[in-house]
Design a protein around this nucleic acid. Structure first.
Lengths: 365, 365
DNA sequence: ATGAAAGCGCTAACAG
DNA sequence: CTGTTAGCGCTTTCAT
């Protein structure tokens, strides 16, 4: 046992020939065959740990040593193996984010801002899409936790107890985003979806609308917005002509222009008298407005339309689209900050942040 | 040296007390404190390597052993550390993709399909956004190569020789996408951007249009499409009224509806007689069409509009938008297949694939 | 079908 | 400021 250990040590140190060639000369396992910190160290005439310090904590290394190490790195084209570094240091400089769908334009802004903010601090973003069903989320979570990321950003709640449990057990900083909830797993940056719905109901009510309707995608958060709208409308005593329920059309997620058109048609067939429609996304609203135009329905005179997301094009429709604006970039930035603070050992002053929202008033309502 | 190595081995094996408790009882470094393969092995009454086999090559393990291992895993909530696994096996089951911008809707479909296809084979997607400048691409590339992914998917060419070099040196399978080029780094799935532009010119010419114009975003690929259009138009002998150059408006990327409106205005100011416009994205086209409507310009009677990307909403504008369709999902799927084949040691039959494109004819042109 | 030993490439801990 | 040593948690290699 001891004998073989000595041999092993010998192999490791390889006090052999020219730095870059000997990697191949070796007998045993040899991973990728690429340049290692060891090769750089030999060329620079220092110990491997010094190269490591030159890279990670340059202020602890003398300028002269730094220079020689840098030179050796340039000459060899050394790229540190972060798998090895992460394993040794328990810090992967990797942050994972899970979104229901990469395709959904609403999350893009958040993800983009998150990626930028993380990148600026030397963290890489790993993205997973869970689909709108919870089923895949659990296995995705396991794959992600297995990489030991320094942080995890979730879009929307993890309803699955297994998932929550795994996350908690892993001890990785978690930021939930978009949704506000009384019982966050760890940290939270979001806003009240019910609140946006309620605000829309109040806004339309204030504009004299009394026969509200909803076209929404069937995902969790969109439904919560619709629910908020309907509850508020009910409180305000407004609904369709019968004074009953608010007419609602639910489409399969994600919301698209095509589904918006279909939604309007279906709604109109059942309730020809509606005077305003709240859409759970601007894309649905685009479809609704197109269909209105196709059928000669004046917007906003006959039907007012309100969207959600305030995507760039909302301002450039005719009439321009009134929409609920959420500062999606800020969500991404704050989520990044939460995780970076946590990783760097700082106290996170605001584990729960409500970024709020606003209604951008334009011509459609 | 030998003596200490023996001591080390002793510590590693820890033939001590109850499986889950002893991790904490240990003196030295102890990474994350989470459950290790070792703990699972002890509970299952097997060697760690057997647990590893049960997980990675279950067909080499007896059913009974498999069952006991599975039970131990369930009981402990063990999640394999893929950093350690990747380091030991040189296979990270991670694929990295670089896109200019996560926000750009055109790439979403490709990225989404890529993520799905990879996920189905047990690979995780790591996403980086380079911005539309090449500058960040190099440092991003280094960060990515450092993670030793099993494959890298690039959107568009890496112009930087440093980047190409690093990629080549790393020996990681690389798939370039979207662009077709005579000198791929490794593998390639794309289509001819010049070709799409030329096809649009021919299409418009065939419809009797003679005064073509272009509104384009200023990124590499969009400019190539515009160039293809202009060259073809010139060959066909069509241009603006003077028979001279094709009027072109270049906007900062990414293309948006707002920039489309501005673009139309600017073009009209210089060339009031244009009869057709090719836009480098559907979003630009949306803006152009909105501005046409605002100024009472009939589409397609006075000005025909052609977009690019065939996003879902294109079919749901009024008039519906004629657009260049690229099968973006297929690009993602094929890119995934290329990398998976390579990783699993299969021959990649088609290192270069042209997925082609088509013009979806609708009412706007 | 299972196990023991060794090592993947790096950094934490502890000197000096 | 620099170096030595001992692992991080897993899988490869070689035995049995």
């Amino acid at each position: 046992m001891a004998r073989r250990s000595v041999a092993a040590k010998k192999t490791r140190s390889r006090p052999s020939v020219s730095a870059l060639a000997d990697g191949n000369a070796r007998r045993g396992r040899r991973g990728t065959g690429s340049v290692r910190i060891f090769d750089v160290a030999k060329i620079a005439g220092v110990a491997p740990i010094t190269v490591s310090r030159a890279l990670n904590t340059p202020h602890l290394v003398s300028p002269e040593t730094l220079r020689r190490v840098q030179q050796a790195i340039d000459r060899t084209g050394y790229v540190p193996n972060m798998l090895a570094g992460g394993l040794a240091s328990s810090r992967s400089r990797l942050v994972a984010a899970i979104v229901p769908s990469i395709t959904s334009p609403v999350f893009q802004e958040t993800i983009g801002a998150l990626a930028d903010a993380l990148g600026a601090s030397g963290f890489q973003l790993m993205l997973g899409q869970s689909g709108y069903a919870d089923s895949r989320e659990d296995e995705l979570l396991e794959a992600i936790v297995g990489r030991r990321p320094d942080g995890i950003v979730l879009t929307g709640l993890t309803r699955s107890p297994v998932g929550r449990q795994r996350l908690l057990a892993a001890g990785i900083p978690v930021v939930e985003t978009w949704d506000l909830t009384p019982t966050p797993i760890d940290m939270l940056v979001g806003f009240s979806h019910e609140g946006t719905g309620a605000a829309v109901a109040e806004y339309l009510h204030g504009r004299g609308r009394r026969k509200l309707a909803v076209v929404t995608a069937g995902d969790e958060r969109a439904l919560r917005r619709a629910r908020g709208m309907i509850d508020a409308a009910t409180r305000l005593g407004i609904g369709n002509v019968l004074g009953g329920e608010i007419p609602m059309h639910v489409a399969l997620p994600p919301g698209t222009a095509g589904k918006g058109r279909t939604g309007l048609l279906e709604l109109l067939a059942r309730h020809p008298d509606i005077d305003s429609i709240y859409c759970s996304s601007d894309m649905l609203a685009l479809g609704v407005m197109t269909e209105c135009r196709a059928r000669g329905i004046a917007v906003p005179e006959q039907i007012a339309v309100v969207g959600y997301g305030d995507l760039e094009f909302a301002a450039h429709l005719l009439p321009s689209l009134t929409s609920v604006r959420v500062n999606a970039s800020v969500i991404g930035q704050l989520a990044a900050r939460c995780i970076i603070d946590r990783v760097e050992g700082r106290e996170v002053r605001t584990p729960v942040t409500d970024v709020g929202f606003s209604i951008v008033t334009r011509d459609s309502a």
